[in-house]
Amino acid sequence: MGQVNNILARLSALDRRIIFLLVAVAVIVPLLIPIGLPVDITKPVKNIYDKVESLPEGSVVVVSIDYDPGSEAELYPATEAFLEHCFRKNLRIFMLALWPAGTPLGNMALENIGAHYNKKYGVDYINVGYKPGGPVMLLSLGKNVGDMVKTDYAGVPIDSLPLGKEVKSARDMALVMSLSAGDPGVLHWIIYFHARFGIPVCAATTAIMAPQQYPYLASGQLVGLMGGLKGAAEYETLVKRRGRALAGMDSQSIVHALLVLFIILGNVILVYQRSKR
């Protein structure tokens, strides 16, 4: 009993650097030696997949890059997995960004995946870059794209691009995918774009934002949801793509297990300290 007391007393004063070291090991080791834990598919992610599958060839999908490099680790794999599915289905991509630093990330994904499927800029996809104005911009975009978009991200007149000429208003859009890390983001697309123009909206959000989207999923205002890296891993599984999200799942699993262990240990120490008093 005295030995247990001694261990718990030592643990209660555990140096946080040891905790940091354990987390680092829990992240790095599964990346170097993958375990290959099975990934289950949740309904909100399957809903996005089914929605994309149901769209006719050539439909225009709006992909909104509503994140920046701070959330790249979590949302970029979802961007690539979603684009891969769209290009495989021969859907066309109209990309924009509600965050200023999002445009180059979107471009990187379009170029990587587009090149793999021999897609042509201006015909199969365009990127109109960062658009300021949040909700008001979305309302105007839905009414008349030309009011909001004169050129693409590189300054090329939108009317000189075949896809740019074709997308005039929300009526020409079949689906919106918001890859969102905060505000402005998916909530604006739901509240201002879906509510006003009826275009279905789906989203990929950071894990911390995912619980906030469930009321919109339940009401049908959000078609589907990829929550965090796990959501992206599920989508990669569905589209049979071995990407960064699936590679990161083992690490995330071990770190989550470690966190739970820390919580249990912290509470055992709490009970021990209380019993001592």
């Binding site: 905790i19 680092a24 490099p69 470690l258 919580i263 709490l270």
Partner: peptide, 23 residues
């Protein structure tokens, strides 16, 4: 740099899980 800032969260959450998440 963005990824580094974001990754730091994991370390701080782990430390908080041990010290602050108490019933």
């Amino acid at each position: 740099l963005g990824a580094t800032m974001f990754s730091l969260l994991a370390f701080f959450v782990a430390s908080a899980a041990f010290r602050a998440f108490r019933a």
